[in-house]
Write a protein that binds this DNA or RNA. Structure first.
Lengths: 225, 225
DNA sequence: ATAGATTTGTCGGCTATGTTACAGTTCCAC
DNA sequence: GTGGAACTGTAACATAGCCGACAAATCTAT
């Protein structure tokens, strides 16, 4: 099913660009493919064999639940991102799942073990992959140290700036972001309470720095953030 | 110089255990070797060619300085740990240095580019290394989410527990840790102010959970942490 | 032994942010 | 279109932990 499609999906990712047709086929053979709609929950750790996923379309959030049942947003995954057992070590105890944010998503996946085989046969891919994981690590470090050392307002600013950079569409000197997050989501991402987030967003709106709605966020002057 | 010694140093690390004599020699040829005393500062990013370091003896802390001149402790490196450009991407803008904590340290290092070559020739090493970096990432994630969601007291407890696990010596039912950190260091690691750390430590001492001195920390009952 | 530097102890005021609580809005399904 | 669910707005109150300030203890070098 979709054999060609999957091929191109993987081919599309910068990590796999250097691979030959045959090599990608190796992954494709066992590749899973899945579509899902807004609000759906996709479990990936625990369940069956450990996999690596590639989000082809839409947005999802990775949510972790701790012992007390508190939910934390671990990551927002966008079109083109890899997620899952990126460390190549299945860890069963982490209690994470993915929730679909956009209207619908398309995900393809392959088995971690197959990927390992591929890496063993392609040292240069292994190297790129290591760098890829390293980059991810660096990003995480960065965002965490932001969370720790800055106050909620700065964190929100930084978050909006990053978001705008990744997904915003520049229209004249404004930046328009499609807003698929609730204020609660935003609050969780910047690690603050929903109320504080609401307050800060409203403050920014009265200041004229942003125009907020459930559909989109318009940043009137990105340089002011 | 020390050719044999360096060989064994590298050989000793679990990552390199599977390598042949020749392969390690490849790294050794350009390996640097260095000793330093307490308080010394070792710059590693910026400076010359990007390197990966292996701490053979002692303890160091990795300190980052941000734009405003604030120091944050990024990591505590112990005997046997690798540090430096582990992501295989030299990044010049990060302003980090290492400071020697224990009385003296021994460090050996090799060039990132040589290591890359080695990885390219050893797919299985590449794979282990990828997993190694992945593990590091997981640890970082973990400790950061601790920092964010728990209060200072819990963080201190967790820190002591981890420290005891890594380096503590069990004597009867007590755990003794050699204390090479100042209270200020501890405060920075658990991301709180020096005063709060002091207060919490004293509180624990009056509670009888620990016995604190500049030389060592004794945890009277590890199970209570 | 002495002086200076570093580390530790303690206090009170201050502020950002979490919490609780409730009301108003928007969205969606039937 | 209507009812219920999910989301957003606002306020009062509590508090953890930061900050400044200073004193006491301990280490280090000469």
């Amino acid at each position: 099913m979709y054999e060609d499609l999957k091929y191109w999906y993987l081919r599309d990712h910068k990590l796999f660009r250097t691979l030959s047709f045959g090599q990608i086929r190796q992954l494709c053979i066992i590749t899973g493919f899945k579509k899902a709609k807004k609000g759906e929950i996709i479990y990936f750790s625990s369940s069956d064999l450990p996999r690596i996923f590639l989000l082809k379309k839409g947005n999802i959030k990775i949510v972790a639940v701790d012992e007390d049942g508190n939910e934390t947003i671990k990551d927002i995954i966008q079109k083109g991102d890899l997620f899952g057992e990126l460390t190549l070590e299945a860890d069963s105890q982490s209690n994470e799942y993915a929730k679909v944010l956009s209207d619908d998503v398309a995900i393809c996946s392959f088995l971690m073990s197959d990927f390992e085989d591929l890496l063993l046969r392609n040292p240069s891919l292994a190297l790129s992959y290591t760098k890829f994981v390293g980059l991810k690590m660096k990003r995480i470090k960065n965002s965490y140290s932001n969370l720790i050392s800055k106050d909620a307002k700065t964190r929100l600013f930084q978050f909006l700036k990053d978001w705008a950079e990744k997904e915003g569409k520049k229209i004249e000197d404004k930046v328009v972001i499609e807003n698929y997050l609730t204020q609660n989501d935003i609050a969780q991402i910047i690690c603050t309470s929903r109320q504080t987030a609401t307050q800060l967003l409203n403050e920014m709106e009265t200041n004229g720095t942003i125009i907020y709605s459930r559909k989109e966020i318009i940043i009137t002057d990105i340089s002011k953030l």
